[in-house]
Each structure stands twice: as C-alpha cells, then as structure tokens.
Amino acid sequence: MGTLHTINKSPFERNSFATCLAHASAGDVILMIEDGVVGARKGSSFAPALAAKLASCAIYALGPDLAARGMKPEDVLEGVKLVDYAGFVDLTTEKARVCAWL
C-alpha cells in the first residue's frame, strides 16, 4: 500500500521537502499542505526536482492551502493533482501509514 508523506514546509525554507522526496519510495504518495504548497508552483527552481519525483510517486497539493497563498490550479506543476480536506482523508486511508515531514 505504501506511505502517504505529508510535507508542510516550503522547499525554500528548510530541507524538509528535499528529505521527504529522498525518503519517498516508488508507489508512495506525497501531499503538500500548508507552506508545502509553495513547492507545487510550476516554473520555480524547485519544480524540476518535484517533476522528477512524479515518475515514481503520485503527488498532490491541498487546494485550500494553494488558494490561501494566492495560487490557482493552473499555477501548479503539470502532473500534480489537487485535493481538498476530504481528499486528504481519502489519501490517508488508501496508504498503509502516514509520515509527516515537518
């Protein structure tokens, strides 16, 4: 079933996001929440690292956190899917465990 990794830190603030990417196994799911959604924006210097991870992991961003930070769905890197809190709950049930990268 794999792991749901939640990441709530911007990749520009700490190394948490890089560490999350480095420890997510193939078939795992990564969900950006809170300031983590900063990492979802296309055209950023972080986008290539996130795009590379899409080859082995499904990647989501929490829509309400994107909206709160002035981002629209079209601002998000291609391949990153959006969920609301209900979708967040669903992702936790679909994976065997949740690992929070703080």
Binding site: T6, N8, T92, T93, R97, V98, A100, L102
Partner: peptide
C-alpha cells in the same frame, strides 16, 4: 488507530 496523522512544525 488504523492511521496516526501528525500536524506540527
């Protein structure tokens, strides 16, 4: 619990 979900800093 079936799932433990952590929110923090």
């Amino acid at each position: 619990a079936d799932r433990l979900v952590t929110f923090g800093d």
